[in-house]
Simulated scan of single mutants.
Amino acid sequence: MEPAKPSQDLVRSVTDEHVLRALMQHRRLTRAELAVEIGISKPTAVESVRRLTERGLVADTGERTPGGRGRGRVGLYYSLAPALGVALAITIAPTGVAAECIDVYGDVVARAARPIDRPAHPTQVSAALSEVAVEVSAAAGQPARLAVIGAADPVDRKTGRLVRLPDAPFLVGELDPAAILAPLEVIVDNDVNWAALAEPTLRDFAYLYLGEGLGCAIVDDGEVRRGHAGLTGEIAHLLTIGPAGRAIRFIDIFGELNLRRDGTTAIDIERLLASDPATHEIIGTAVAGAIAAVIALADPQEIVVGGSWGPALLDSIRPAVDRMPRRVPVRASALTGDPVLAGVRAAACTRLRASVTTTD
């Protein structure tokens, strides 16, 4: 029995998607160039451009190739239609809420930010989130199709709500970003997961975030493993090695060393980095204990250390890891700047493009 042939509607749909993605990559192409780029006949490219123009997704730019007088026919340049919409890339962090508008080409077309107090209050964070979303959408001059959010708190994978856990340094209560930004489609995940996904080329690793808070992302075959409730990698309460070899919760060691911000469990980064080598050795041993647990449970190919103080203490972390029964390579994150925003931005662009190519 011969396999069923794809329907004409399916073939046209796939061709149209290829045309849209080619224009996302090259910004403008003639129909002849589209045919070569995609590997289809020119008549097929002409028909696809006609369909997409009628749907308002592609437009004639008004630009023409040189032609006439023996140089062939004039070619018309086509591009994606203006105002196809943007995606919001948003981060919710202890320092504030920041938002960018990303267009289908991956360009940032608008930015906005709002500071928040320490400790954060849910009403203030909610207001800041709403305000930056409205501001960047208005500045972009295009409708927002969706929002991707990275939050410095655990995220319930089923509801997208932020989760309050004991000893978390950034407590905003059970914030519901999807409800605040309704009716937009909203994708929310923990900031450490987004930072891990931004790491180039890696597919099997553990990303250890060491900053004001403590976190870990497990990436297996290119996918973040989130667990039943989305709380995989919440390592603050993990038992590790403290001063004098005592068992201690990971987060508590910073209290014992007087390295917390006043009135909170947040780690005082400046005080930690300025502490003496003996303190760094104690912290390095504690981090190595956490790494040993991650290796035992997740079996990563390597450990990537990020965050605002983790990479700076690698010289204290690596020797302690080398004393552990099982070892894997430990290195600093390859990313500089804001890895969380990099991950959120990439996801926002990918989802926006998918949204455009599947538009009826």
Rank of each mutant, 00 (worst) to 15 (best):
G307L: 13
A292G: 02
R261Q: 11
R226E: 07
G227D: 04
I295M: 08
P311W: 14
G289F: 08
I295R: 14
L257M: 03
G230Y: 09
L238D: 09
I253Y: 00
H228I: 14
A296G: 14
T279V: 11
S308I: 12
R246K: 07
G215E: 08
V294I: 14
A292Q: 15
A288G: 05
G242F: 03
I253M: 07
A266V: 07
S275Y: 02
D220H: 06
I218H: 06
I295S: 03
A312C: 00
D252G: 10
I248S: 07
F250S: 09
T264A: 04
R260F: 01
I235F: 11
G306D: 02
E302W: 08
L231T: 11
S275F: 03
H228Q: 11
I251C: 01
D276G: 03
T285E: 14
V224P: 10
D252A: 14
H237P: 14
R226T: 15
G310A: 06
I267K: 06
I282D: 00
E270I: 07
A312G: 02
L313P: 02
R261F: 04
G284T: 13
L257F: 00
A293I: 13
V304A: 11
R249K: 15
G306Y: 11
G284W: 13
E223P: 02
R271L: 04
G242K: 03
I253C: 01
V304C: 07
G310E: 06
